[in-house]
Structures are given as C-alpha cells and as structure tokens.
Simulated assay, not measured.
Amino acid sequence: MVAGKASNEHANRGVSQLRKGVLEYCVLALLRDQPRYGVELLEVLADSPVMATSQGTLYPLLSRLRRSGLADTFLVESASGPSRRYYELTDQGRQALEGFAGNWPGFRDAVDRFLVPGDEA
C-alpha cells in the first residue's frame, strides 16, 4: 500500500510539472479571443480539473506575461466593487501562441509514442 501511495504522489508531481509547462500557453489561448480578468481565467481553467490552479500561481504568471510583452492590461470600472484588471493578448503574445500551437502536435505525438508499450522509436 505504501508503494502505491508513493507512486500516486510521483504521478501527481508529474501532472503538476506538466501543468506548469503548458499553463502559460493555455492562458495565452484563453486571451486569444477576448480580454479576461484574473478570476475569470481561474474559473475557466478550473473547468478542466487538470488545469485548475491558484491565484498564487496565476497572478505572477500574468505579471510575467505582461512584463515580457505577451499580454497587456487595462482597467474596467465595476458597479459592484473595485475596477477589474483585464488582460489581453498582444501581437507578440499571439505569435508566441501560434509558435507553441505549431510545435505542440509533434511534441504530444512524440510523448504518446513513448507511452505506448512496445512502440519504441
């Protein structure tokens, strides 16, 4: 039973590392069609349990996207509270997303090939 628990913990760490690796591009993809604010991004990500994340992860990521020129922000007044900071994709962010989207199928297919028993390259 202890070995099974250790194996589950290792698998959970693996999922966490995968999420960290692709979360930036998932956020860029969510900004592709419309600007969104932070809590909205958290809610949409939570719709896919494997991509659910926390404010402590998302907001620093959004700051990095803004600093690196991949996203921009603007404030919108809210009738029910403080202004909301919206994030939108920049042209540079769109190019980065397109580059990732172009590379993703080959990367995914390569990993899938390794995961299928007896299907080594």
Rank of each mutant, 00 (worst) to 15 (best):
L30R: 03
L30V: 03
L31P: 03
R32Q: 05
R32T: 01
R32F: 00
D33C: 01
D33N: 10
D33L: 02
Q34V: 05
P35N: 10
P35T: 10
Y37I: 06
G38P: 13
G38C: 13
V39Q: 15
V39K: 15
V39P: 14
E40D: 13
E40K: 08
L41A: 06
E43I: 06
E43C: 09
V44A: 14
V44Y: 11
L45F: 08
A46K: 14
A46L: 05
D47P: 04
D47R: 15
S48A: 13
S48K: 12
S48V: 15
S48G: 10
P49S: 03
A52C: 09
A52S: 12
A52F: 02
T53Y: 05
T53N: 06
S54D: 07
S54C: 01
Q55C: 04
Q55D: 08
G56C: 02
T57P: 08
T57W: 02
T57Y: 02
L58Y: 08
L58E: 11
L58F: 07
Y59F: 07
P60E: 00
P60R: 01
P60M: 00
L62G: 08
S63G: 15
S63Q: 15
R64L: 05
R64G: 01
R64C: 02
L65R: 07
L65Y: 08
R66K: 14
R67K: 14
R67G: 05
R67M: 11
S68C: 07
S68G: 07
L70Y: 09
A71W: 03
A71G: 01
D72V: 06
D72H: 06
T73P: 03
T73Q: 02
T73M: 04
F74Q: 07
L75S: 13
V76A: 08
V76H: 10
E77L: 11
A79H: 12
A79V: 09
S80C: 08
S80Q: 15
G81M: 10
P82W: 12
P82R: 14
P82E: 14
S83R: 13
S83Q: 12
S83N: 14
R84T: 00
R84H: 11
R85F: 06
R85T: 14
R85V: 12
Y86E: 09
Y86N: 10
Y87D: 01
Y87W: 08
E88T: 09
E88C: 09
L89S: 07
L89M: 12
T90D: 04
T90W: 09
T90Y: 10
D91P: 06
Q92M: 11
Q92V: 11
G93M: 11
G93N: 05
G93C: 06
R94W: 01
Q95E: 15
Q95C: 12
L97Y: 02
L97P: 03
E98P: 03
G99W: 13
F100T: 10
G102R: 10
N103W: 13
N103S: 14
W104K: 12
W104V: 13
W104H: 12
W104E: 12
W104I: 09
P105W: 00
G106D: 09
F107S: 13
F107Y: 14
R108W: 06
R108Y: 09
R108C: 05
R108M: 09
D109K: 03
D109E: 10
D109G: 00
A110E: 10
A110P: 03
D112M: 11
D112T: 04
D112H: 03
D112Y: 06
R113S: 00
L115I: 01
L115V: 00
L115G: 00
P117Y: 02
P117V: 01
G118S: 02
D119E: 01
E120W: 01
